[in-house]
Computed example of a mutant assay.
Amino acid sequence: MPKGYWISAYRTISDPEKLAAYNKLAAPAVKAGGGQTLVRGGRVVAHDAGIAERTVLIEFDSIEQAVAARESATYQEALSILSDGVERDFRIVEGTD
């Protein structure tokens, strides 16, 4: 079965305190949803229209599991704290077999 992935590419971080508060709640929510963080922050080399800002990649056993984790009450609470603290491109994608 193909894996599911959360991919977050941050365009701007306008409120680092909101991001820190979000991270405290999001990390346990992701883990509870079956996610494994593969990339969080670190060095970025951007090409084309990419922005060399924070990037996060989280793996789930399936796209269904990834969607369910995003929709969970615990992750929604983390999102409410993040609110307008960042601008990011967040996608859930299905991997290949």
Rank of each mutant, 00 (worst) to 15 (best):
M1T: 11
M1P: 11
M1L: 11
K3Y: 08
K3Q: 07
W6K: 04
I7T: 14
S8M: 08
S8N: 14
Y10L: 00
Y10V: 15
T12F: 02
T12H: 07
T12P: 11
T12N: 10
S14D: 14
D15P: 03
D15Q: 14
K18N: 05
L19I: 01
A21W: 06
A21M: 03
N23H: 04
K24P: 14
A26P: 15
A26H: 08
A27T: 07
A27Y: 02
P28K: 03
A29G: 08
K31N: 04
A32K: 09
G35M: 01
Q36Y: 04
V39T: 11
G41T: 06
R43Q: 14
V45F: 06
V45P: 08
A46I: 04
H47I: 09
A49Q: 08
A52K: 02
A52F: 02
L57K: 07
I58F: 07
D61S: 12
E64I: 01
R70N: 08
E71H: 11
A73S: 13
Q76E: 01
Q76M: 08
E77I: 01
L79F: 00
S80L: 10
I81W: 09
S83H: 10
S83M: 06
E87Y: 02
D89A: 09
F90T: 12
F90P: 12
V93D: 01
T96R: 13
T96L: 13
D97T: 09
